[in-house]
Design a protein around this nucleic acid. Structure first.
Lengths: 343, 343
DNA sequence: ATGAAAGCGCTAACAT
DNA sequence: ATGTTAGCGCTTTCAT
C-alpha cells in the first residue's frame, strides 16, 4: 500500500464514500451493519490511521488536556506529590481517550511567554492548573474562555472551578489527635499562606485548639512554605518554647522538623510528637528508613488527579453550568511519630 | 472584536494578504520592515492566536513530542528518577518551543490499545521512549517510521537511536572504589538483566573484580530488579556469605540493603559498606534522613532528558542520518555509606 | 442509510 | 516583497 492513506482511499477500497468511512470511524448510528463491517475490514487491512490534525481542524477538538505546574512550586520534583498527581491525571486521560500535555515552568520568563502558547487556539480542549498561589502571574489563565480546572482552591477567584481536599478538617483532625494523646503545647509550622491549603490548615489547627479549650500561643506558630528547609529553621525557632508536639502542614516540613529535633538531641515521639500532612512517606517509597515513621494526614493525591480530569471533561461538556467545587476527604494515618499506640 | 480571528481578517486589518501575515508570524525573510511592524501591531491589538490545528494540517508538524513510560517501570513514581527525567525533557521542550505529551501506561491493556494512539498520524512529531526492556510489547514502537529516540540502550535493536550513561564504567568505578578502600568480599545486587543498564552494571562489577585480581564469587551475586523490595530480600540472602561490601545497581536497591542490614543488626559502613547507583537521595530531597548518607554513582538524569530532546529534534531534522548513540558520563559521589574518609 | 460538497484556518508553491 | 491559489484530511450539513 503506497501513497498516504486517507479517508477517500479507504472509501474507494470499501466501495463507499469518504463520509461513510468517517461515520464508521466515529461510531455514528445509521450505518448498515454489512457496510460497517466492510469498512472496518479495510481499515484493519490497511492499518489506516486518521490524521489527527485534520480531525482537529474539522471538529474543533484535539483530545489534548493541558496540565500546568507553576514555577513557584520548588518541590515539583523533590517530593512525590506532583509525580502522583500526574500519575492520577495520566490514568484518567488514558481511560477517557485524551492525551496529557505537560507544562512545567522553571522560570518566570517561561511562565510569561509560554502562557500564550498554552492558550493558543485549536490546541488544548481544556486546562488543569496545579499549585497556584495568590498573585501568581499564571492566574491570568483563569480568565481565559477555555475550560479550566484548578487543583487546590485558588485564592481570589471565587468563581473558578476546582478540586481540593478538606484542608481545614484534615488539620483539625491531626491536631485533635495530638490533643487526645495528652499534648498541651502543640506547635505548628504553617504552609504558604498565599495558598488556600496553607490558610485552611492553619485554621484547622486554630479551631482544634479552641474547641478543646487550649490557648493559642503565637510563639508556637511559625511560618513555613511547605518545603523542608524552611521548616527545619522554623523548628529550631520553636524549640526554646518547649512544644510537646508539632503539627507540620506538609510531610516535607515534618521531615525538616524531625531533622531539627534529631540535631537538638530530642527524641520523637517521647520528647516531642510530630504529625505531618500529605502522606508522602508510605512504605512503598524510597523513604522507609525514616525514623520514626510519620503520622500524617493522607490526601488522595492520585484520586484528585483523576477527579480533576473528570471534572474538567464535565466542564467541557457543559460549559455554562455553574462552577464546580469538589472537596475530597482526608484520612488520619497513625504511625509512630505521634506517640499513639502503634501495635 | 467579534467573529473568530483568522489570518484573513488580520490581513484585511493590516491591509495585506493572508500569506504576508503568515510570513510575518513564521519569521520568513523578505518582508518589508514597515509591513512586518504593521502586521505585528494588528496581531498585538487583536490578540490574534494562530489556530494550531490548521497549522499542523497544512505544515505537517504539530510541535508535539511524546514521552512514553512503559508500565513495567513500577518505580515510575516511587522514586525520583522519572520525575527528574520528565523535568529535563520538559525544560528542553520549553526551550525549543515544543510541547510534551506524556503517556504513562499502567496496564498491559493500556499499552496495547494506546500504542496505536501514540502513533497516529498528524499527532506527534517525534517520540521518546524510556525504560524499555527486552521483549517489551512497546518495542513495536521502535519499528515505526516516526522519529524515535530511546532513553536507555534498548536490547535487541542495534539500529535504534538512544541516549544513555556509561553504565559499565559507572559500576566499574563504584566497585573499584570499594576495592581501594580495602574491601575483599564485595557483593552485588544486579538490576533487571533484561535491560542494558542491568547487564552493563553487572559487567562493570565483574570487570572491576577481575582487573584487581579478586575472585568472582557467585554466592556474592544476587539478582534484583532495580526496586527496593526485591533488593531487601536479596540482601538477606547475601548475609550468610559475609560480604564486607555491597554494590547495589540502583539507589532504591541500596535502600533495601540498608534496611536489611539494619534489621540484621549490622552497621554501615563499619560492618558492611554500601554503594548505590543513580544518586536519588541527595540532600535536597525528602530523603536527608537516610543514615548513613549513600555513596553512589550519579547519573545526570535531567541532562539525559534534555539531551534526549535535542537528539530527537536532530533526528527529526535529519531523518536519514545514521542512528545516534549518545553516552553521558557518570560521577562517583562519596558520602558515608562506603566508609571512605568523609570530611 | 449514504453521497456530494462546503468548509475548518493555515502553509507553501507559484506567479508577479 | 507580496498576492493568488491549491491543497492538507477530515467533519458535517444538506440532499437524496
Amino acid at each position: 500500500m503506497e501513497g498516504k492513506l486517507t479517508l477517500e482511499k479507504i472509501g474507494a477500497l470499501a466501495g463507499v464514500s469518504r463520509a461513510t468511512v468517517s461515520r464508521v470511524i466515529n461510531n455514528h448510528p445509521n450505518i448498515r451493519e454489512e457496510v460497517r463491517q466492510r469498512v472496518l475490514d479495510v481499515i484493519a487491512d490497511t492499518g489506516y490511521q486518521p490524521n489527527q490534525a485534520a480531525r482537529s481542524l474539522a471538529s474543533n477538538r484535539t483530545g489534548l488536556l493541558g496540565l500546568v505546574i507553576p514555577r513557584v512550586i520548588q518541590a515539583i520534583f523533590t517530593d512525590l506529590y506532583y509525580p502522583r498527581l500526574i500519575q492520577g491525571i495520566s490514568q484518567a486521560c488514558n481511560e477517557s481517550g485524551h492525551t496529557l500535555a505537560l507544562f512545567i515552568f522553571h522560570t518566570e520568563e517561561e511562565e510569561q511567554q509560554m502562557a500564550a502558547q498554552v492558550m493558543r487556539q485549536g490546541f488544548l480542549d481544556g486546562l488543569i492548573i496545579a499549585g497556584l498561589h495568590f498573585d501568581d502571574p499564571l492566574n491570568q489563565l483563569l480568565l481565559s474562555e477555555k475550560p479550566v480546572l484548578v487543583i487546590g482552591e485558588p485564592l481570589g477567584y471565587p468563581t473558578a472551578s476546582f478540586v481540593d481536599v478538606d484542608n481545614r478538617l484534615g488539620a483539625y483532625t491531626a491536631v485533635s489527635h495530638l490533643i487526645s494523646l495528652g499534648h498541651q503545647r502543640i506547635a505548628t509550622i504553617t504552609g504558604r499562606l498565599d495558598m488556600a491549603a496553607g490558610q485552611q490548615r492553619r485554621q484547622g489547627y486554630l479551631d482544634a485548639l479552641q474547641d478543646h479549650n487550649l490557648p493559642v500561643n503565637e510563639q508556637l506558630m511559625e511560618a513555613g512554605d511547605f518545603e523542608q528547609e524552611k521548616a527545619y529553621q522554623a523548628a529550631l525557632q520553636l524549640l526554646p518554647h518547649h512544644p510537646d508536639a508539632v503539627f507540620a502542614a506538609s510531610d516535607s516540613m515534618a521531615l525538616g522538623v524531625l531533622r531539627a529535633l534529631a540535631d537538638a538531641g530530642l527524641r520523637v515521639p517521647d520528647d516531642v510528637a510530630v504529625v505531618g500532612y500529605d502522606d508522602l512517606t508510605p512504605e512503598d517509597t524510597a523513604v522507609p528508613l525514616i525514623n520514626p515513621p510519620l503520622t500524617t494526614i493522607r490526601q488522595p493525591i492520585r484520586r484528585m488527579g483523576a477527579q480533576a480530569v473528570e471534572t474538567l471533561l464535565d466542564i467541557i461538556k457543559q460549559p455554562d453550568a455553574p462552577p464546580r467545587r469538589v472537596i475530597l476527604p482526608t484520612e488520619l494515618i497513625i504511625r509512630q511519630s505521634c506517640g499513639a499506640d502503634y501495635s
